[in-house]
Lab assay of single mutants.
Amino acid sequence: MSGIALSRLAQERKAWRKDHPFGFVAVPTKNPDGTMNLMNWECAIPGKKGTPWEGGLFKLRMLFKDDYPSSPPKCKFEPPLFHPNVYPSGTVCLSILEEDKDWRPAITIKQILLGIQELLNEPNIQDPAQAEAYTIYCQNRVEYEKRVRAQAKKFAPS
């Protein structure tokens, strides 16, 4: 494992614990031996107030490669969400998460999670990743928002 990646992720964890947006979660997972795995984080993004996503808490896994922060983490909703920019596998399609697009090593975990929260309610229809959600979003916004509200209710924190 890269010392650069681990040191950056340790800084990220410290900064997150000191200050993070209300309702968001970002925690490194534990290895079988109980030690912390900084390369694999369990996160959760709350649906934004005043949107059909409100009330939901959407679980996301963030996986970092050894060359982080040169390369972005892979962000994957578990379980996958109904959304035009979420692949059926759950992987998020967002330009700041793509090395050859808008990724920059200075982007923080907090910025990534806030960017994904923004994307939930403002899909990028130029870059669809899920045919069904994309089609319904474009053709029947009322039905799309109904499905999103049902999903938010399903993923409401207990």
Rank of each mutant, 00 (worst) to 15 (best):
M1F: 07
S2E: 11
G3E: 12
G3D: 14
G3C: 12
G3F: 11
I4E: 12
I4C: 12
A5G: 14
A5K: 06
A5Q: 13
L6M: 15
S7K: 07
S7W: 08
R8G: 01
Q11L: 13
E12F: 02
E12Y: 02
E12Q: 09
E12T: 01
K14V: 09
A15K: 15
R17N: 01
K18E: 05
D19I: 04
D19C: 04
D19A: 12
H20I: 05
H20D: 05
P21E: 01
F22Y: 10
F22R: 00
G23R: 04
F24G: 07
V27Y: 10
V27W: 06
P28Q: 04
P28L: 07
P28N: 06
T29E: 13
N31L: 14
D33N: 07
D33F: 01
T35S: 14
M36G: 04
M36I: 09
N37V: 13
N40E: 15
W41M: 07
E42Q: 09
C43A: 12
I45F: 07
I45A: 03
G47V: 00
G47I: 05
K49H: 14
K49M: 09
G50Y: 14
G50R: 13
P52A: 14
W53A: 01
W53M: 04
E54V: 08
G56T: 00
L57D: 05
L57M: 09
F58D: 06
F58Q: 06
K59S: 12
K59I: 10
L60K: 04
R61D: 11
M62I: 10
M62C: 08
F64D: 05
F64W: 06
K65A: 05
K65Q: 14
D67V: 09
D67E: 13
P69K: 06
S70W: 09
S71M: 06
P72S: 10
P72I: 01
P73G: 01
K74F: 15
F77A: 00
H83G: 03
H83N: 01
P84K: 00
N85P: 02
Y87I: 08
P88F: 09
S89K: 11
S89E: 14
L94W: 05
L97C: 15
E98W: 10
E99H: 07
D100I: 15
D100R: 08
D100K: 12
D100Y: 14
D102E: 10
W103A: 01
R104C: 11
P105H: 01
I107G: 12
I107P: 03
I109Y: 03
Q111K: 15
I112G: 06
L113V: 12
L113A: 13
L113C: 13
L114T: 13
G115V: 00
I116S: 11
E118R: 11
L119S: 05
L120I: 07
L120H: 00
P123Y: 04
N124K: 01
N124E: 02
I125H: 03
I125N: 08
I125D: 05
P128F: 01
A129G: 04
A129D: 04
Q130G: 00
Q130A: 12
A131D: 08
A131M: 06
A131T: 14
E132D: 14
E132W: 05
E132F: 06
E132G: 11
A133I: 03
Y134T: 05
T135I: 11
Y137M: 11
C138F: 08
N140H: 09
V142S: 14
V142M: 13
E143L: 10
Y144H: 03
Y144K: 02
E145S: 06
E145G: 05
E145L: 14
R147C: 11
R147H: 08
R147L: 14
A150P: 09
A150W: 09
A150F: 10
K153Q: 09
K153F: 08
K154V: 14
F155M: 05
A156P: 10
P157Y: 09
